[in-house]
Design a protein around this nucleic acid. Structure first.
Length: 549
RNA sequence: GCGCCCGUAGCUCAGUUGGAUAGAGCGCCGGCCUCCGGAGCCGGGUGCCAGGGGUUCGAAUCCUCUCGGGCGCGCCA
């Protein structure tokens, strides 16, 4: 739709002998409907170049522009020199028929052209249950995956499992301590270990005989046994949490595999050495990341020769790069934003182009109840978890609320509001619209009004509320495009609320099922088109679209 | 001190990658069910868009400085 308009403007400019890049011709949607459906500012933007008054220039463009009447029925100059286009009635109503035809494929785009991308998210350390930030990241990541798929990318989702390194050792020590306590030994949890109750529970699950036999091994082997046991259970717990939240990953990528002999850790090191971006100092090996805009250089190998967390992370990105993704998106928590530069630096050493790695950050979530902040830690070492939140407010409300904010903004999560199963809660507002439409459609069927095989009847739609609704349904593909382009999944929630509101307005003014059979058929098609767009928006967000509630 | 993020209505936040008169939800007040779902609709807003400067036809949006809040700044992960 936009392409057609841009082409027509470009042709008009050609006729006037004005040379403008097609890229520079941009369309937008005016907020005031009096200004039409699409607006172009090219006359304003190019007035300086052609040394003309923008309004006169715009008028010249308008008089040279050509459209078929079934697409655009009005083109006019307005304000300081905007060129405004009003879509024709037959084009708009025709879109209602189109949505009914394309169904869930409406809004599918081909900007991905089947290229592969990877979205890595959550990736919380497997040392305990998932907490709130992870829930937010899971929601954003899940929606992003859906969105990119809709835009024509081949998308894979991945969870990076830090199953190596010191925190796993501490996890083992923590569990070992809990086990000792369980069998009546004197044992105290060392500092820096994990004090959460879940480890006490895990210690109960270890068969007593087996646990005791582990304790008889030498210190290091004993720890390893407990670590292994803890890791297995905690990972299982995390997967269950994600399952419960209905977020699924194509891959779980274990850090430990990077450390295998000849693995990516070694390779990444070799590449860096041969790229002349490393140096030795104080017995350690450093990456000269400042050369790529990082604040300081980073250690790759400690003076005892062991690899840092960063080296493994870099190696992980080398692995991703070799897997041939067109683009890789990482979603980081607020405490990791300092890692962005160094990973971009490492990626470019491995040969990735600028922009290959896109890192999004999600910010902390504060819970608010009755206007006051809820303390995030229940007791020492126990934080409010994803599971706590979901069992409190429900999956749909949690996801919807997370996506009402842009991901890089801090958010106050209004628990009292999210819990309410009433009109005040925006999730139910949107879901209610979907349920209501479903109900109307089945009512229509019971009254003998069915979907017509011939969709000509849509031309009968002409009430202002009908047209307002149609205009909003028509922008769905552009909404998807903008959301993908900016990695802005939160636009979908705003849009869904907007569609729901427009439907309710329509519903209160226009009776769908009436004695006028043709009009009823037309409104049934409009209702179904709305339902399809709502359901699809909710699907992308990861929220159910119920037929009854 | 340095870096990143944030600052928009009483509260929580949108704001279409620089556009025309800045929007929604919550809260508060008042209306609307003999009729397809009242979890709905209609009406009620004096916002120095944190503040100063700049860029241009045009700024909540871009640049710069200041103020306020969050998070980072380890041979931890």
């Amino acid at each position: 739709m936009q392409d057609r308009v841009i082409r027509a403007i470009a042709e008009a400019l050609d006729k006037l002998g004005v040379d403008v890049d097609r890229e520079d011709i941009q369309l937008e949607r005016p907020n005031d409907p009096a200004n039409g459906d699409l607006s172009c500012n090219i006359a304003l933007a190019a007035a300086g170049m052609v040394k003309r008054n923008p309004r006169d220039f715009a008028a010249d463009i308008v008089s040279n522009i050509e459209f078929s009447a079934d697409f655009i029925d009005r083109v006019e100059v307005a304000g300081p020199g905007f060129i405004n286009f009003a879509l024709s009635h037959s084009y708009l109503t025709g879109q209602v028929a189109r949505i009914n035809r394309e169904k869930t494929e409406y809004g599918n785009l081909d900007i991905g052209k089947g290229r592969k991308i990877l979205v890595e998210f959550v990736s919380a350390n497997p040392t305990g249950p998932l907490v709130l930030v992870s829930a937010r990241a899971a929601t954003v990541g899940g929606a992003l995956v859906n969105l990119y798929r809709k835009a024509g990318f081949e998308v894979e989702s991945e969870y990076y499992l830090n199953d190596a390194g010191s925190q796993i050792e501490k996890l083992g020590i923590s569990l070992m301590t809990r086990f000792r306590q369980r069998i009546g030994e004197e044992a105290e949890l060392p500092p820096d270990c994990y004090p959460g109750d879940y480890l006490v529970e895990l210690a109960e699950e270890i068969p007593a005989g087996e646990g005791k036999s582990w304790l008889e091994l030498d210190e290091q082997d004993a720890r390893a046994r407990f670590s292994e046991f803890a890791l297995d259970r905690v990972v299982r717990m995390i997967r269950e949490d994600l399952d419960y939240f209905d977020i699924h990953f194509d891959h779980y990528f274990a850090e430990s595999q990077l450390h295998r002999p000849g693995g990516e850790v070694e390779e990444a090191l070799e590449i860096m050495k041969s790229s002349d971006v490393v140096y030795e100092e104080d017995g350690a090996l450093w990456f000269r990341s400042t050369r790529f805009g990082d604040e300081k250089d980073r250690v790759l190998l400690r003076s005892d020769g062991s690899p840092t967390y960063f080296l493994a992370d870099a190696a992980y990105h080398l692995n991703k790069f070799r897997r041939g993704y067109h683009r890789v998106i990482d979603i980081f928590g607020p405490d990791h934003h300092g890692h962005i530069r160094r990973l971009e630096a490492a990626s470019s050493v491995f040969g990735a182009e600028q922009g290959w790695l896109q890192v999004l950050t999600v910010q902390w979530v504060r819970l608010i109840e009755d206007g006051r902040q809820v303390s995030m830690s229940k007791r020492e070492g126990e934080f409010i978890t994803l599971r706590d939140l979901v069992s409190d407010v429900g999956r749909d409300a949690a996801k919807f609320f997370f996506l009402m904010r842009k991901n890089q903004a801090h958010m106050d999560f209004n628990l009292s509001l999210a819990r309410k199963q009433s009109d005040e809660n925006p999730v139910y507002y949107v879901q209610y619209a979907h349920a209501r439409i479903s109900s109307i459609i089945s009512f229509a069927g019971s009254e003998g009004v069915d979907f017509p095989s011939d969709t000509e009847c849509v031309s009968m739609l002409r009430e202002p509320e009908e047209m307002e609704l149609i205009r909003k349904l028509v922008i769905f593909p552009q909404l998807i495009e903008g959301a993908v382009h900016n990695n802005d999944v939160n636009r979908l929630t705003t849009y869904a609320q907007d569609i729901a509101a427009s439907f309710h307005h329509f519903y209160h003014v226009c009776r769908v099922v009436s004695s006028d059979r043709e009009l009823s058929a037309a409104r049934l098609l409009l209702s179904e088109a709305t339902r399809l767009v709502l359901a699809e928006s909710l699907r992308l967000i990861g929220v159910d679209a119920p037929e009854r509630m």
